[in-house]
Computed example of a mutant assay.
Amino acid sequence: MLSAADLAGRLAENAEGVCRHYLSAGRRAGNYWLVGDVGNNKGQSLYVHLVGPRAGRWTDAATGQFGDLLDLVRETCGLVDFRHVAEEVRHFLSLPRPGPVSSNCAYGDDNRPFDRPAAERARRLFRMTVPLALTLADAYLRERGILRASTHTALRFHPSCYYRDLVTGRATSYPALIAAVTDAAGAITGVHRTWLDADGDGKARVDDPRRALGGLLGNAVRFGFPINDPVPVLAAGEGLETMLSLSHVMPAMPMVAALTANHLAAFNFPPGCRRIYIAADADAAGRHGIEGLSRRAQGCGILPLVLSPELGDFNEDLRWLGPDRLTASLRAQLTPEDATAFLP
């Protein structure tokens, strides 16, 4: 039986054929195949190397996703289990099948894979989760001082979420914290996965324990966010733990985690927004996100205000300085009106 690395190598030998089949909305440009995303939408943010030593490797500049053609097949076909990915690849390569196809495999009546948009695949994964309370993911967040995470419906737990090492090709699964990425109407457009160590020792020991799937651009993970109502004041930042730490001491303030600096800069403002507090991130990419979102806010007549942690980030403030010290620090940075409305 061919290994995952063997299958990825076979696909890379015919990288352009793979792209024409699974990413038919794209086009060749020199030594690359350009398309909008893994959902086969038009655009050019996702590029696939077609020749050379990196043939078959791909990156989506908009979402930060990357991988080889085995990952591409998994994403475009909306598959979860590796055995279904391998079966689809064998079908494409016209290789002998090792056994009968499972009824869960994503094939239609004509034996071709369904074309599932990325958002649909994200919703499918979210439906496979369980409530966060009393799970390993809840314990993971509690260790970080975030005690009320289970009150947020955007956060769920998956006991065995598929993970594939992009270097070795090894496929396995780990428990995972799953966060729903939603649009302004509350529809799930994507998910963010944080794989966890099964023994409760923090994140899983893998190269990239955090990955996103689906439509992130303009959207975010939302906490305490009213749907279809004006949101005059909110806080926005990159990381889940950063925003959950702020929400721990300001539970009444609507908050969003955009997950990356680029997506923070592109976040779509809710209706009625007058002020937006932007949680600072000290690195260069974080400053880019703050500056981009601030410029867009000012252009829309929204006042941007930056919240800065005392230590490296707001989760460090919560864990090492405590909620009272974090509350006092935020009180000095909020407008008097907002300090009265959102802080105890």
Rank of each mutant, 00 (worst) to 15 (best):
V306L: 12
L293M: 08
S160Q: 14
G272E: 06
V191N: 05
P98V: 11
E310G: 07
S308I: 10
G43Y: 06
V51Q: 00
G322A: 08
L141F: 06
A282P: 03
G312C: 07
E87N: 03
E16R: 04
G301T: 04
R205Y: 05
F126N: 00
L177H: 02
E337A: 06
R331S: 14
Y163C: 07
A62L: 11
A171F: 11
N14I: 11
N40M: 03
P131L: 13
A279T: 03
P96E: 13
R121H: 14
G190V: 09
L326N: 03
T151G: 00
T172C: 04
I188H: 03
D81G: 06
K203L: 01
L23N: 04
R10Y: 12
R287T: 04
E316A: 15
W195N: 05
H248M: 13
N268A: 14
V101N: 02
H288M: 09
Q333Y: 07
L23A: 02
A284K: 14
G78V: 06
G190C: 07
S103H: 08
S247N: 10
A5D: 14
R10E: 15
G39Y: 00
A187P: 00
A179G: 14
C273Q: 05
L321W: 07
Y277V: 04
P159K: 09
V231R: 01
F157H: 15
C19Q: 04
C300T: 02
Q65S: 11
R90P: 01
R121D: 02
V249H: 12
R121G: 13
L34G: 03
E75F: 10
M255V: 08
R222Q: 15
M128H: 14
S45T: 13
A106G: 01
I290S: 05
G30Y: 14
N228V: 10
L11Q: 01
G214L: 06
G214S: 12
L95Y: 08
N14M: 12
F342D: 02
R27M: 14
L217E: 15
N31L: 13
G99S: 10
D201K: 05
A332P: 02
A279K: 05
A204W: 01
V130R: 15
L70S: 09
R319W: 08
D324F: 11
A258S: 14
L23W: 04
V256K: 04
S3I: 06
A137M: 11
G190P: 04
D165H: 14
L216S: 11
G218K: 12
G301D: 07
R331D: 15
L72H: 03
G312T: 07
P175V: 10
F225Y: 13
L134E: 14
D110I: 00
F223K: 05
L11M: 07
R319A: 12
I302T: 05
E310S: 09
R275H: 01
H21G: 06
P159I: 11
F157V: 12
P100M: 07
P336A: 08
L305V: 06
D6V: 10
R287N: 11
L46C: 06
C77Q: 03
R27E: 14
L134I: 09
I276E: 00
G237Q: 10
L259M: 12
G186K: 02
L72S: 04
